[in-house]
């Protein structure tokens, strides 16, 4: 096996009020199934340790958890080396259910955005209400950042995690870096 290489090769940037860093190789398993099916929900809970998070929610700590992606899709995040085995165990648990689990660790790039300016930085590029009252810990949003699709959630440690497609990973990092460096902030923060 060759070693995983991330889209930005471990890039980091420290701005005046926020810091952006490449999360490194992050294990990601796409899970799809019928949310209302008790057998599916029970299989996910048994294998991941997390209940299926409801709309716009993330269950877990730091980078490891279960993230809502759409009404029939979730993203399990875990250490990179575990992803393949966890996807296999999920598939086995699903048995004959109309559901799937696939290791998509190499499909996306992941970043960590922290610091008091993190909310304002994301609010510049995403059409999302990021005021603390509207977007709290464990909240997820799958949306647009700059010109590309991205998803981010706010961890209990106060740092945002952001995932985007790997092909646009360098663009997203450069976008975040340029926006953080410019110092411009949307009104209301």
């Amino acid at each position: 096996m060759s070693d995983p290489v991330t889209a930005t090769g471990g890039a980091r940037f420290a701005g005046s009020d926020c810091a952006i860093s490449d999360l490194g190789a992050l294990g990601m398993v796409a899970i799809r199934g019928e949310a209302g099916d008790p057998a599916f929900a029970a299989a996910v809970q048994a294998e991941t340790g997390f209940a299926l998070p409801p709309v716009r929610r993330f269950e877990g700590e730091a980078e490891a958890g279960l993230c809502w992606m759409s009404p029939d899709e979730w993203l399990l995040t875990c250490p990179y080396a575990e992803a393949e085995a966890r996807a296999g165990r999920l598939r086995a648990a699903f048995g004959g259910l109309h559901a799937l689990a696939v290791n998509v660790s190499d499909a996306r790039a992941a970043f960590r955005i922290e610091g008091e300016g993190a909310r304002a930085l994301l609010a510049r590029g995403a059409p999302v209400d990021l005021a603390p009252a509207a977007f709290g810990e464990g909240d997820v949003r799958r949306t647009r950042l700059g010109q590309v699709a991205a998803a981010f959630w706010l961890g209990r440690d106060g740092a945002f995690r952001l995932v985007c497609f790997r092909s646009v990973g360098a663009y997203v990092f450069d976008w975040l870096k340029a926006s953080a460096a410019s110092g411009a902030r949307p009104a209301g923060f």
């Binding site: 709309v55 759409s70 059409p127 799958r142």
Partner: peptide, 12 residues
């Protein structure tokens, strides 16, 4: 109406 999330038009 599928996911219940509100957004502005550039997200759609």
């Amino acid at each position: 109406p599928c996911c219940g999330v509100s957004g502005e038009e550039t997200e759609f």
